[in-house]
Computed example of a mutant assay.
Amino acid sequence: MPPDTQGKEKIGLRERKKRKTRLTLQQQALRLFREQGYRETTIEQIAEACEISPSTFFRYFPTKEALVLDDEYDPILVREFQRQPPELTPIQAFRAAARAGFAGMTLEESAALKERIGLMISVPELRAASLMQMNETLLMIAEIMAERLGRSKDDFQVMTFAGSILGAMMTVQIYCKNHPEADFAQTVDEALSYLETGQPLAGQGTTPQK
């Protein structure tokens, strides 16, 4: 096996181990949050449940809030979006990227994501932190859209389009919090599909104009 291939394999193993550790930390934290509450749970308790030191915990998450808010989905989404064929419209490419990203998640990761979203909405300090984080997400979406279209990431239309996508994602989070039976990935796809149609909206008993 060539040396560079060996290097890639070792990096892959390290990344898988890191991902597994992060997932374990989140799973144990979520269990403790369910049992005793978010505010009552300490980083020391989470670290003890995972049989690591608090200092090791901080190698994976800088704060307790980050443990709930942070995941690896954004980089995956960017990579999948950049892989989409050029003939797709921006919303079609984003929708395909979202599908691919969710398809790569394990059942444990999907369950953890849904539970973390519930915490983001229900815990005031997490809700405030997540709103601040969404500014970064908006800029990320605008940047990948601008790159695809050959436009500036500060372009007003590009920013507005990115905002519509982010708004749809926020709506999905609230909807799934209020409807626990809803499948998060499927609901994201339905929301993006609605954006793709141009968002026709009419009153009850009326037909949307085409």
Rank of each mutant, 00 (worst) to 15 (best):
T56L: 15
L23T: 08
R127E: 08
K17G: 02
T106R: 04
A182R: 14
R148E: 01
A182I: 12
S152M: 10
P180L: 05
R34N: 03
A182W: 00
Q45P: 08
R127P: 00
G12Y: 09
T160Y: 15
P180N: 04
G101I: 06
Q157I: 07
T24N: 02
K17F: 01
Q36A: 05
S53Y: 11
A185K: 07
L113I: 04
A112R: 03
I144E: 13
S152C: 06
C176V: 06
R14W: 15
L139V: 14
E181F: 01
R151G: 14
R59I: 14
P90N: 12
L13P: 01
V188F: 11
R59E: 15
G205A: 15
R83A: 02
I174E: 04
N178H: 11
A168W: 10
I46V: 09
M145Y: 12
F57C: 08
S152E: 12
L88S: 13
A111L: 02
F58E: 07
Q45I: 01
Q209H: 00
E108S: 05
T106S: 08
H179E: 08
Y194G: 06
I117S: 05
R59F: 15
P2D: 08
A182C: 09
D71A: 15
A93T: 07
P124M: 03
Q199P: 10
P86W: 06
F81A: 09
Q28R: 15
